[in-house]
Simulated assay, not measured.
Amino acid sequence: MFAKEITVMSFENYFPLWNNLNTAHKKLISDNLITQHVKKGTIIHNGNMDCTGLLLVKSGQLRTYILSDEGREITLYRLFNMDMCLLSASCIIRSIQFEVTIEAEKDTDLWIIPAEIYKGIMKDSAPVANYTNELMATRFSDVMWLLEQIMWKSLDKRVASFLLEETSIEETNELKITHETIANHLGSHREVITRMLRYFQGEGLVKLSRGKITILDPKRLETLQRS
């Protein structure tokens, strides 16, 4: 069996709309599907300069973030196995200008349906158009949730929540992460995050070492994030 046939067969199992496509649309995707392996730290999509296409993660982890004029970052959402991102192809949807950057947080295998290919199928297929609208609504809900966190939650609660999320993702209480990275996720400054983490350490919640944060009391962190 040819490598491309193997790729498409695997893609069928990941793409939720595959069985709703007609034969012509399936062939169009199969003939134009892009397979990529990207290393940690690779920028996959860079703002409005790119219209990359629909991303589907096979394995790995991506981070979608926005960048301020001053160079500060804040994470909008992350993508894991079988997650899809449409903001990397926002040019296919009229009146949407959403300038995001997408970076690989880990070595990642993904598929890309080119924007023009997906746009053409979306025009012809009601199930694809409906799913696209649902996916875009989900991502905007993620963004609105983030705005609520920024507006109404204090930084100590947001840091506690982030640390707990990281322990869940990495499946360990020993996080190999820098203060700068946390600041970039939360839209803060490294110095501010360092002060907060030192406070947590003084309270016995975490232990800090170079390039690593060890969670000592996850239950108290959970209580803090809910309070």
Rank of each mutant, 00 (worst) to 15 (best):
L135A: 13
V100N: 05
E70W: 12
K26G: 10
K207V: 04
R198T: 05
D156W: 06
E180V: 12
D107M: 01
I215N: 03
H189L: 12
H45S: 05
W145A: 15
A137S: 09
I113D: 00
H189P: 00
Y199M: 06
G71A: 08
T75K: 03
W18H: 03
Q36Y: 01
Q36V: 00
L67S: 10
T108W: 01
G211F: 11
T178Q: 14
L28R: 12
R226F: 06
K176G: 10
H185M: 02
I6N: 07
M82S: 14
K27W: 07
A104S: 14
R78K: 12
E165N: 13
E191R: 12
N13A: 13
H179Q: 14
T138Q: 08
M136L: 15
I66L: 06
L67D: 00
W145Q: 12
A3N: 06
F162P: 05
F98E: 07
L86A: 12
A183F: 13
S59R: 09
H45E: 05
G60V: 03
V128H: 01
F15L: 08
L163N: 07
Y131F: 15
L76Y: 04
I182D: 02
L221A: 05
S95H: 10
T167P: 10
F98L: 11
E203A: 07
T132S: 15
V100F: 01
L155E: 06
I169Y: 13
I6K: 07
S161C: 08
D142Q: 08
E166N: 14
L67E: 09
N22Q: 05
D109C: 04
E12D: 01
L135D: 02
K212T: 09
T178R: 15
T214R: 12
K58A: 14
